[in-house]
């Protein structure tokens, strides 16, 4: 599947800091409309920081982040979300004080095209069965499903997913992978942070390798297969 044309997200020379500690040293990459791009790299390479910087959660950042040509770096997180980006963090951030139903209904509908409560419950039958339970009483896989389901409500068509496979059993990872592929087939653009190379390979169109807060390589899945030894050396596996 080709994804030609102007990028939906263009990150250029992005630098970011946590207090005085510099975490990104000039990240540059593009995500095209309808594409599924992964950021892969070792722990601490800067993948999560990149997503948090795009989302404005890491506020001290320079460079350029453009969504459909519109600069995001001067905006606050809620303003960025309203531009059409939804974020699912690594820790899932399920609210312990809210039930599954409340967690699911929490994000407001920001634009048309989001899934209704009924559609979400139909798409995630496990969540329907556990709707009255506390959000953090779910299994890890169910929490991950909830975290992804929740952001589909907003109507945002560009998803930032941070390590959705982390800590899950292989059978659940497979389910998450199928869910991500279904979202891609429905036209969502997805920027995925992933350490699980096999998982990344199974879902993504292209892969951006991150090391020490900068991009060191960009590969299609075919190139990834051909140059697996090189990629493994990047990841230290």
């Amino acid at each position: 599947m080709s994804h030609d044309g102007a990028p939906l997200l263009a990150v250029d020379n992005l630098q970011a800091w946590y207090a005085e500690s510099k975490a990104l040293h000039g990240m540059s990459f593009e995500v095209r409309q309808g594409e599924l791009l992964t950021l892969i790299g070792r722990n601490g390479a800067g993948k999560t920081t990149t997503l948090r910087s795009v989302m404005g959660i890491v506020r001290r950042r320079t460079g350029s982040i453009r969504l459909a040509g519109e600069e995001l770096t001067g905006l606050r997180t809620y303003q960025i979300a309203r531009k059409g980006i939804a974020y699912c963090p690594e820790e899932r951030a399920i609210f312990a004080s809210l039930s599954v139903r409340e967690n699911l209904a929490l994000p407001p509908v920001l634009r048309t095209g989001g899934l209704s409560d009924d559609e979400l419950m139909s798409a995630f039958p496990n969540l329907r069965a556990r709707a009255g339970s506390g959000g953090t009483k779910l299994s890890g896989g169910e929490q991950q499903m909830l975290a992804i389901a929740r952001i589909l409500r907003t109507g945002s068509r560009f998803l930032l997913l941070d390590e959705p496979s982390e800590g899950l059993a292989p059978v659940i990872v497979k389910e998450i992978g199928q869910l991500i592929l279904r979202l891609k087939a429905r036209g969502f653009t997805i920027l995925l942070v992933e350490q699980n190379l096999r998982f990344a390979r199974s879902v993504a169109d292209r892969h951006v390798v991150v090391e020490n807060g900068r991009v060191v390589d960009t590969l299609t899945t075919a190139e990834l297969d051909a140059g697996m030894a090189r990629v493994k050396s990047y990841l230290g596996v």
């Binding site: 989302m55 959660i57 606050r76 997180t77 809620y78 979300a81 309203r82 939804a86 974020y87 963090p89 951030a93 609210f95 312990a96 004080s97 809210l98 409340e102 209904a105 929490l106 994000p107 407001p108 920001l110 952001i151 907003t154």
Partner: peptide, 25 residues
């Protein structure tokens, strides 16, 4: 209420609530 749910959620994780497009400040 929905407003109360926002408040309770923001009490736990304001960044996450803001990432939903809610004007937390």
């Amino acid at each position: 209420t929905k407003l109360g749910a926002y408040l309770r959620a923001a009490n736990e994780n304001p960044n996450m609530v803001e990432s939903f497009g809610i004007n937390v400040p």
